[in-house]
Nucleic acid binder design. Structure first.
Length: 255
DNA sequence: AAAGCGGGGGA
DNA sequence: TCCCCAGCTTT
């Protein structure tokens, strides 16, 4: 048993994850350098509750059909719906996309605003999407916290610490402390690394601890090691208090 | 803070 | 079947 108080530093996690990402990155349209804020916004919206592998080809088609918010408004909803049908939720999503595009046209000249508050005011856009669009679409690094990132932080930093951090409303700050400073591309890669890692290695069920580059310092993996051969499990369920993102954006602090 | 939404897919 | 998902909105 290692010392209780020993904490895994964000810097160490960052190094390991970036190294892991070098050879395990997934490639998607919205990760290309020339991806426009509109493409990023549309992608993030479709990615909600939906596997990235499926979203990728559909985003390509959708963007070809609707390369801008104005263009999207000219496409019949039914057409949008049938295009995104393979992703599910097609009616709700077609409607929501139209609302988003309509707001962009009506209030922002048909362009995606480079502003956190303006983005957050868009319908169906919350903190995760705001930060992702700013980071990827505009090159302004912000932390992202989704179910994957929450789970990873929860495991690698330990339940108690994350709960305390959450109670202090600092979960986003903790994610932010993993971001490399001064280099936008590295920040993007780290955010993507967190998400890919959560999707491919630190999965909700049956996490792949044996191949995990964080296992030597991960309390959850340590608890899972067995002497007797009985598999104890890595916690899959997040504490109730962590199941949802904080709806409110805390100003100040940050860094 | 908690429920509702909304449906697909993996284990 | 059950449980989770690259969340957000509403109560």
């Amino acid at each position: 048993m290692s010392r209780r108080g020993a904490r895994v530093s964000p810097a160490w996690v960052r190094r390991r994850l970036l190294a892991w990402y070098d050879t395990n990155a997934r490639r998607f349209v919205w990760r290309r350098r020339r991806a426009s804020p509109w493409l990023v916004l549309v992608s993030e919206f479709l990615l909600r509750k939906t596997g990235a592998r499926k979203v990728d080809p559909i985003v390509r088609e959708l963007i070809r059909l609707a390369p801008s918010p104005e263009a999207l408004l000219r496409v019949p909803s039914r057409r949008i719906g049938s295009l995104i049908h393979p992703l599910g939720l097609q009616n709700m999503r077609a409607r929501a996309l139209r609302q988003i595009a309509g707001t962009l046209v009506a209030e922002h000249g048909g362009r995606v605003p480079r502003d956190a508050e303006a983005l957050a005011a868009l319908p169906h856009v919350g903190r995760y999407m705001v930060n992702s669009v700013l980071t990827v679409g505009f090159g302004e690094p912000r932390p992202i916290v989704d179910a994957n990132v929450m789970r990873l932080l929860h495991r690698v930093h330990g339940v108690r610490e994350v709960v305390e951090i959450h109670r202090a409303d600092n979960l986003w700050d903790l994610a932010g402390r993993h971001l490399p400073k001064g280099d936008v591309e590295s920040a993007k890669r780290l955010n993507w690394a967190l998400v890919d890692f959560g999707a491919l290695v630190c999965t909700a069920r049956a996490p792949r601890c044996p191949i995990c580059p964080l296992r030597e310092r991960c309390p959850a993996a340590r608890g899972r090691r067995t002497v007797s051969g009985r598999r104890s499990s890595v916690p899959t369920q997040l504490p109730l208090s962590m199941r949802k993102n904080d709806p409110k954006h805390r100003s100040g602090g940050g860094r």
